[in-house]
């Protein structure tokens, strides 16, 4: 989960100060990589692919950090970039069936909310049972604690779409958790 008590990022170094730039880039990535990986894992469902996409995001950040105008926009930039990398990955691998708004894929196995505490695997499995558009919205909501407006910005979709997808995804979640609710 994002650590709201983290101190603010150190000031951006001069691009000419190679050592300081590297230290600053490291600091940014170390703050975000766990959540980025978790989000990537929720999208791909595969550890190696998730690590690959996370790494590609970090690499893009190292290349383009100076084009991000404000430090406050870094988080959104990272998630936007990661999601684009995921879309490229999906296009290359064609593992994921194109989304149809009319259905969510739900398997019959059900979990209990108590199981969610053990480790992240049960929660991740629940996310994996959803179609990608719902999964991507719900993952950002839970993993990075983003507002629906921020999610809309990252995924480049209207806020109304985010709200409706969140609502439907939560319906699915409740169905999967139904026995204990």
């Amino acid at each position: 989960m994002p650590d709201t008590d983290q101190p603010p990022l150190p000031p951006r170094p001069s691009p000419q100060d190679e050592v300081a730039v590297q230290a600053w880039l490291d600091e940014v990535i170390l703050r975000h990589y766990r959540q980025l990986y978790c989000y990537s894992l929720s999208l791909t469902g595969h550890e190696a692919d998730a690590a690959d996409i996370t790494q590609q995001t970090a690499v893009k950040f190292a290349q383009h950090w100076s084009s991000i105008r404000e430090d406050g926009a870094i988080r959104s930039w990272l998630y936007t970039t990661l999601y684009r990398e995921f879309l490229l990955f999906r296009r290359r691998t064609r593992k994921t069936v194109e989304f149809e708004e009319s259905h969510l894929s739900v398997e019959l196995h059900q979990a209990s909310p108590q199981e969610l505490n053990a480790d992240g695997s049960t929660a991740m499995e629940l996310l994996e049972r959803m179609d990608e558009p719902h999964r991507s919205v719900l993952s950002l909501f839970y993993i990075e604690d983003l507002s629906y407006r921020e999610i809309a910005e990252i995924l480049d979709i209207p806020t109304g779409t985010v709200m409706s997808r969140l609502s439907r995804a939560k319906d699915t979640l409740r169905t999967l958790l139904a026995p204990a609710l």
Binding site: Y33, R34, N117, A123, D145
Partner: peptide, 26 residues
């Protein structure tokens, strides 16, 4: 449910090698 999902996903650990790999890749 929201709070439990948040807490649960917060337990997901990246591969131990990922941190070093990211820094090296950058």
């Amino acid at each position: 449910v929201d709070l439990k999902m948040k807490a649960s996903l917060g337990q997901v650990e990246p591969p131990p090698s990922l941190e070093a790999a990211l820094l090296m890749a950058m």
